[in-house]
Write a protein that binds this DNA or RNA. Sequence first.
DNA 1: ACCTGAACACCGTTCAAGT
DNA 2: ACCTGAACACCGTTCAAGT
Lengths: 227, 227
Amino acid sequence: MADKSERRADPLSQERIVSAAIAILDEGGAGALTFRALSARLATGSGAIYWHVADKQALLTAATDQVIAQAMARGGDGTPPDEAIRALALGVFDTIDAHPWVGAQLADDPWQHAVLRILEGVGAQVAALGVPEEGRFNAATALLSFILGLAGQYAVGSSRFGGDMDRATFLREVASQWAQLDPVEHPFVREVAAQLPQHDDRQQFLAGVDLILAGIERSRRSRRTSG
Amino acid sequence: MADKSERRADPLSQERIVSAAIAILDEGGAGALTFRALSARLATGSGAIYWHVADKQALLTAATDQVIAQAMARGGDGTPPDEAIRALALGVFDTIDAHPWVGAQLADDPWQHAVLRILEGVGAQVAALGVPEEGRFNAATALLSFILGLAGQYAVGSSRFGGDMDRATFLREVASQWAQLDPVEHPFVREVAAQLPQHDDRQQFLAGVDLILAGIERSRRSRRTSG
DNA sequence: ACCTGAACACCGTTCAAGT
DNA sequence: ACCTGAACACCGTTCAAGT
């Protein structure tokens, strides 16, 4: 018989608490994670959790770190750096797709370890790409910011209407809203509304990554030519 | 005699409520905005606010929209499109610098009007840049995602330690933390830590914008060459 | 050392009652 | 039509008391 709550027998630990938190977040979103829900699932008192975890912020950080660490572990050895960057970016994208609360959490604290993990992965490949040391920080943070920005954007859209409708229906609805905007004030958004329903989030995400990679390649070449 | 609270005489209105909310957010950050603080400043009952504003989310959206609308109003007419994009991006950056809560709010709801305003501004310039219609959406959202991503990142760092220390001290502290990371697991972040203290956020932000602009230019050329 | 669970100081939101 | 302010249903966090 499946029982969501854990047996009271085994003692509490950071690890068990974080796992339970991730399960609650995946099932109900960021709003569902409360210390009361958590202690109920763990069959313990709400105060007990504070013996193992400093506070809710620390819990969210730990949960995010675990999820991102798993995503980063899938390292592409032997693949060319630009391919590796695409794979890494898609890995983050798919992770946020599977755990939408991670998007907001990454944006909420850019100095947390999970973000450093992504920066490390991106930076290593930027270096492998041949970018000289002075340019690596800017190139890596540009990629990082884009990844966090678009992935977070996608996360909200997908999670907000996750229950009521699917992504396609949601996009069609947004498109019809955009199409009704003031033509004088929003000509571009209106024009782009037509592309919205049939657009593919992953494809758009990759197109952005490729744009930045092209920019990196271009500035690398001009530097070599002029230097 | 300066009095922060408004005179009870004038009637409540959406506009007065939003202005008061912005003032509270600017002074105390996102955590300071409560309906109790708001009603105290407006010298009214907490329930009265609900007659003019649907809920807290709507209030935050309206506040963000007003701040971003002001930033977008400074339109650079007559400047070349790439310059206009840089100016526009910096405008958003500086706005978030002045109102750090805007960063989180923009990331929190990517479909709100404030985000559309930015997308509209970016998209118009992307079109002026000569990008063909099929490529504009991807190019504009790439720029948008980068702007929201890095600006949000900066906002958190600057606001979190706004009271205790200045940005330079904060960066020096982060750098020394990064320098102590495991060399095997985080070689890149450790390398980059050395650049952190003397780096300029605005410069890094512009470098990222330029990278994407270079990528847009490159794919525009290759398309023309191959087409 | 670890856990319990009532209690505290907050929230956003509602709503009967006023003007 | 607009405003009041107590009340409700929640939060995160603390802490005396247990084992």
